[in-house]
């Protein structure tokens, strides 16, 4: 068969597939089905091509990743999640604390890391406020304070109009000094944070009536992934202050936190998957959050498809390698 015949055959197959999709699926699923067909059809074509030991160009890989990430954003694909033990441990800890307990949430990340960890920060904040815990928000990163303000005004507080600043929650903001900040707040909050972000003295804020240092809070959740971040919270506050610490980290940082689990870190939320599992657990336990925006769950679509594309390229790369090696031997 010549090249023209192949093109004609391809066009006929494409028309049949398009007709089948239009006939079999409802209109609202067409985008999803076509994009999946495009990705998987392309991968099958590359797989067949790899049998001839032909390397794939970098721009082709980039194109596949672009479609794999963009398609589930444009045409959402959602999955159900089963919280793993490391995520469930954090959920249970917050769930089992008596109402009115004090939880410290530290936003130790920047905009680069935010898409991965901000969804979990928002979900945990909502969980704490819904349970009636008092929440102290802070940040060890200069960029974290801006993200914290954004989270509070655009997401977290929207669902809790009755919560009062200084009584139910407080934002003490950012302080430079990295682990030095932790070294001080483990014995004295006021020395390092004389006021909150609105310049209200800490001694005038009701939450701090019974809280003199980080040792006095019931649970610390550090969300981040860089330095200073979750690891420093464990080393400088959790251990010396004997306070339970949970961490939410970017996926690439999660392996570094496992040495501390479960003795020094009670649970780990790793990347978008960790956020999605937490959001799922939260929606499952609280019907009030049924309509809550769940960016973690939404992002699992692009992540899943991107992972499948990467795995397929690993397989294709190995086929090309072994075919090439055999040809070279012959």
């Amino acid at each position: 068969m010549g090249k023209r015949h192949w093109i004609l055959l391809g066009a006929i197959v494409a028309v049949i597939i398009i007709a089948a999709v239009l006939w079999l699926f409802p209109k609202e699923r067409w985008g999803t089905v076509f994009s999946l067909l495009l990705v998987f059809g392309g991968l099958v074509a590359l797989l067949l091509r790899s049998l001839y030991a032909k390397e794939v160009e970098r721009r082709i890989i980039f194109l596949f990743i672009l479609v794999a990430v963009a398609a589930p954003i444009l045409f959402p694909i959602t999955f159900t999640e089963k919280p793993t033990a490391v995520v469930q441990a954090v959920f249970d800890k917050i769930e089992n604390l008596p109402s009115g307990s004090t939880v410290l949430l530290s936003f130790d990340f920047d905009p680069a890391m935010a898409p991965e960890v901000q969804p979990m920060a928002n979900a945990i904040s909502r969980h704490c406020l819904e349970k009636g815990h008092k929440v102290i928000f802070m940040s060890l990163w200069a960029t974290g304070q801006a993200l914290l303000s954004q989270s509070l005004s655009d997401y977290i507080l929207l669902g809790f109009p009755d919560k009062v600043d200084g009584v139910d929650y407080v934002n003490i903001g950012y302080k430079a000094g990295n682990e030095g900040v932790l070294n001080v707040i483990v014995s004295n909050f006021e020395k390092m944070f004389p006021t909150d972000v609105n310049s209200v003295p800490l001694k005038d804020i009701r939450i701090f009536d019974d809280i003199a240092s980080a040792k006095d809070v019931d649970f610390i959740m550090s969300i981040g992934g860089g330095m200073p971040g979750p690891k420093e919270w464990v080393l400088f506050v959790g251990d010396p202050g004997d306070v339970d610490v949970g961490v939410g980290v970017a996926a690439v940082v999660a392996p570094q936190m496992y040495p501390y689990y479960p003795a020094q870190v009670i649970g780990i939320l790793g990347g978008v998957k960790g956020a999605a599992e937490y959001e799922y657990a939260l929606k499952d336990a609280y019907p009030v959050f049924a309509d809550m925006d769940t960016p973690g769950l939404r992002m699992m679509g692009p992540q899943t498809l991107a992972h499948i594309v990467i795995l397929s390229f690993i397989v294709i790369g190995n086929i090309i390698y072994f075919r090439g090696r055999r040809e070279r031997k012959q």
Partner: peptide, 21 residues
């Protein structure tokens, strides 16, 4: 700052895919 930093980090997905291959 937010979109600029997020864009830079998002580019990683492309390089990770290429490097994994």
């Amino acid at each position: 700052i937010n979109p600029l930093q997020s864009t830079m980090y998002a580019l990683l997905a492309f390089f990770v895919a290429s490097a994994s291959y």
